[in-house]
Design a protein around this nucleic acid. Structure first.
Lengths: 241, 241
DNA sequence: TCAAAAGTGTTCAGCGTACACCCATGC
DNA sequence: GCATGGGTGTACGCTGAACACTTTTGA
């Protein structure tokens, strides 16, 4: 359209259907936690010129779904993963980012406990959990997407209690601390960490202990999601680690 | 594509060019500040069924530009505004959000000092600064976009010194405090605010005073962007208001 | 001399940080 | 009895929050 030209409903419809159409995809960085580290789910990429590399899980969005729905559907279709917490992060839109044409992608991340889910290889693309330290050169701009999503995850984990879903319902304080150290990639002081958690008053002491461990058994706790929600509604809550 | 069907390069190209194409737009919430308040730039909407409402400034993305470039171009073309700080916030993607077809939009915001820019009405859509309190019912899902962008702006202003561009180069501490109170929509304590700014050591005392004011003249300061950058690079900086 | 905004200090409570030893259990 | 990880307390410094009066200028 020329600058200053008056638009009408026909020019709009034309433009919507021609000039500016782009393929839209979502790409999802699935972070997985187990007690050995933080990993992400990668699959084989067989699209030229990136054959042989690995990529994160993504696909094109359909015309009858919004992006959140697309992300959920695609992850389920390609890996069997369902009912995940997902968070939209950012659009990646360089015109030449995709070899087969203009594809704008919306990056999402998800965070799960590896043991709770079974990955189904529905497409013979060998989905694998790769430790966050060991990710090599990925297809497309997926390295950039992964690092953007990791930053976003770390910020979120510091500010919201999304980490608790990564632990068993009953967990010890050491498990919790290890979780934060792993996801944030930092070390924390044991005593200070405990005092902090204690001051939040959001853990329920279950009065139970670990069993059959060859050392002093740890006390077990669970997270009080109800109390968290009600405190948050009432306005004042510093969840900040 | 059926689940489990093996993809190849032809199915990909087909899908990229047919099923999943959507029109992509950017919509930009331009926040403008002057000493009377925080405003946003709205234009008349003449697209059915939203004729008569106002809307934020947006348009379709072209195939040869990325989203940041599109946002810059569109704002310049429609309002004459150029060289703005812009920040991508989120995609809005409900399939029926746009009356003329599938349009996924990426929301951006920008923040400027009203006096520094001249708005050019290139399309006879009467661009206007509307106080943030007085925004009525906007076209499309633009009310939702505006409130999402406002939250995002407020978070950014608290954590980064983007507010200083809204003031004259030489400003008083009261002007600075008013700015934060206006943008964040809260009240601040004068003495605590001053102590905080003082402790950051990022203001340069110019040794000058206001003139021709009918009360005690305020001292004037400027913000030390260089020092801010170097402190930030060296790692340790708590800019947090 | 008055109106209007500028400027200034202290106290208190809470929070992050640094740091080292004893405890309970299984083998 | 020893190896292993669990569990605990104190002191210090920084920061945010609350709060009221004096100063300087122009009209």
């Amino acid at each position: 359209m020329l600058q200053g030209e008056k638009e009408n409903i026909n020019t709009w419809i034309t433009r919507i259907n021609t000039d500016s159409k782009a393929a839209i995809s979502v790409d999802c960085v699935v972070f997985g936690y187990d007690e050995t580290g933080l990993k992400i789910l990668l699959i084989d990429c067989d699209m030229p010129p990136h054959e042989g590399k690995m990529s994160i899980v993504g696909d094109l969005v359909r015309s009858d779904e919004n992006l959140d729905q697309a992300a959920t559907r695609i992850l389920e279709q390609r890996t069997g993963l369902a009912n995940l917490y997902m968070e939209q992060v950012k659009a990646f839109s360089e015109p030449k980012r995709h070899p087969l044409g203009r594809v704008i992608t919306l990056a999402y991340y998800s965070l799960i406990k590896i043991k709770d889910y079974i990955i189904v290889d529905k497409e013979h693309k060998q989905p694998k959990w790769i430790n966050i330290e060991d990710i090599g050169d990925l297809a497309f701009d997926h390295n950039e997407i992964v690092s953007t999503c990791l930053e976003s995850l770390q910020k979120k984990v510091r500010e919201h209690p999304i980490g608790f879903s990564l632990l068993p319902k009953k967990f010890s304080l050491m498990q919790l601390q290890n979780l934060y150290e792993t996801v944030l990639g930092i070390e924390l002081d044991k005593r200070n960490f405990r005092r902090k958690l204690n001051s939040l008053k959001l853990l329920i002491d279950l009065g139970e202990n670990q069993k059959e461990v060859s050392h002093r058994p740890a006390k077990l706790y669970s997270f009080d999601f109800e109390k968290y929600d009600s405190k948050r509604k009432k306005g004042k809550l510093n969840f900040e680690l």
